[in-house]
């Protein structure tokens, strides 16, 4: 277990609470992110949306996938949180879900 902890990169001190990045300049106000975000992270705005509650983001990646203008980036990667725990405990940095999980 301890070996795994060493191999996996710990989150940097003082780093943002998550990896969500919004580039307002690219936003065309299409409203897709408002629809797909399950945590209401984005809020409607006059000419572009606002990233209103970034701290609620759980990095599902839905907004990035569905933003047609590439205004949102988030590191969602593969694997659910349960798999991250498993990977960390097994000492692997890369996270894979088996066929068996998520049922």
């Amino acid at each position: 277990m301890d070996i795994g902890m060493l191999e996996m990169q710990p989150p940097e001190k003082g780093a943002a609470i998550n990896t969500l990045v919004f580039r307002p300049g690219r936003c065309t106000n299409c409203g897709m992110c408002l629809k797909v975000c399950p945590h209401r992270v984005f809020a409607p705005g006059e000419r572009r949306v606002k990233m209103a509650r970034a701290d609620l983001c759980m990095e599902c990646g839905a907004c990035q996938m569905n933003c047609p203008s590439g205004a949102i980036a988030v590191d969602s990667g593969v694997g659910c949180a349960a798999a991250i725990i498993k990977a960390a405990l097994r000492g692997k940095d890369e996270v894979v879900c088996g066929e068996e999980c998520c049922r």
Binding site: M1, M5, M8, P10, P11, A15, A16, I17, N18, T19, P38, H39, C57, M58, E59, C60, D75, S76, G77, G79, C80, A81, A82, A83, I84, I85, A88, L89
Partner: peptide, 24 residues
């Protein structure tokens, strides 16, 4: 800690942080 993994609330960054904070 394992429940962290089964909610639709915690981000991967958050889970990672929690693992590092609590496993020791």
């Amino acid at each position: 800690l394992n429940f962290t993994g089964s909610t639709t609330f915690t981000s991967r960054t958050g889970v990672r942080r929690e693992i590092f904070a609590y496993i020791p």
